[in-house]
Design a protein around this nucleic acid. Structure first.
Lengths: 205, 205
DNA sequence: CAGTGTGAAGATGTTCACAGCG
DNA sequence: CGCTGTGAACATCTTCACACTG
């Protein structure tokens, strides 16, 4: 293992490796080669080996990678050994879908609190989460030490919410609003932009 | 303008340019320089100029780009001059959020039909769209000449739905299921993978 | 001897720097 | 004179090819 800088593309692929491994483990597979891996994920096998080698020598020459050991290693690399509690802001279409979303691995991610500005919604419960008044956001996430925020408000309100999240001590934001957020250096952003995806998609059609 | 191959990263940025331009137009701005553009989008100004120059010489030296002209040019490049009708499959959390989603520019994208396998849902209407039996999917999208499909079913069912969409003549798929789809060469895929985004995000925290 | 780990080559994307135009 | 458009330099990422090992 070398102390090289890790390409962000490699980080991009780690979740895919992990997902693939978990399927293999379920099927009772004990080992997987980079070749087999690469076939399943439509990658080059050298890519797989290089990606994994950034983090250590996990493989066995002549054999491949042990599925369980590698999965556990990747979970460790990705910081998936604590359950991440998240604060959701904006309980509209997307927000309420996320509150009942079953796609998160419950081991890893959980929406712990939800906020909205609509008085009609305050106090309601969705999936055991009570919707709170958005003005309490910074105070509440600070008190509960929540480090992950999800923004599901209209674009026009997104920056303000982001600022409040940062104020409350969040270090990562998942943003569904089609807005460019200005964040301090140390706060990481992941953007999910459905319209942008569609616009790109139709370019190629 | 050269006949060079256009980087996919450039295509990635076009929707952002467009969104920025539309805001500028709203504000009554007639021109924008690559420098100003780059500040708003956190890019290098040479990047902006290079991206735009792939499609023609849209700028005026000493002045910049005409906001309206450029916006209209980008819409043309992205194929946003027809309204894209979409077929949604899977009216669960995410699916129903998409049916009432107001984030699509209605000029460009519209969910035209929706399908599910749950008999409880068939026949119901959400936002003027009647939910149909998923077995009718290929036939119906072929009849209506729908070219864009949205997959919002569990990962285990995603490939099957994708196949049926292709059978019905879809040429682009937006997939929300955390599954790797196998598609014919000519069908384009856009993937929205919330859990993957979160997993990447926490790597950096 | 099959399959990893990795330098080196190749491909792709970004930034610099400046000629040249309006 | 300011700003575009663009070769050339630079940076990053991917793939090749093979030495080496379990």
């Amino acid at each position: 293992m070398k102390e090289r800088k890790i390409p962000k593309e490699t980080i991009d692929r780690l979740p895919l490796y992990l997902r693939c491994l978990e399927k293999l483990i379920e099927d009772g597979e004990e080992n997987i080669s980079s070749k087999n891996f690469s076939k399943r994920l439509n990658l080059n096998s050298a890519q797989v080996r290089k990606d994994l080698s950034y983090f250590g020598d996990f493989g066995t020459r002549g054999v491949g990678y042990k599925t369980k050991k590698l999965a556990s290693k990747i979970r460790e690399i990705l910081n998936l050994n604590t359950k991440w509690k998240m604060a959701l802001v904006g309980v509209g279409n997307i927000g309420s879908a996320l509150l009942t979303y079953t796609g998160f691995d419950e081991r890893d991610f959980q929406v712990e609190m939800a906020f909205d500005s609509d008085p009609e919604l305050i106090g309601k419960e969705i999936n055991d989460v009570e919707i709170e008044e958005v003005s309490r956001l910074p105070e509440r996430i600070e008190a509960e030490e929540i480090k992950l925020g999800i923004i599901a408000v209209p674009a026009s309100a997104a920056q303000e919410i982001a600022d409040q999240m940062v104020e409350g001590g969040v270090t990562g934001i998942l943003n569904f609003a089609p807005a460019l957020l200005n964040l301090p250096e140390e706060v990481r952003l992941a953007q999910v932009d459905i319209t942008k995806e569609l616009e790109q998609l139709v370019y190629y059609l």
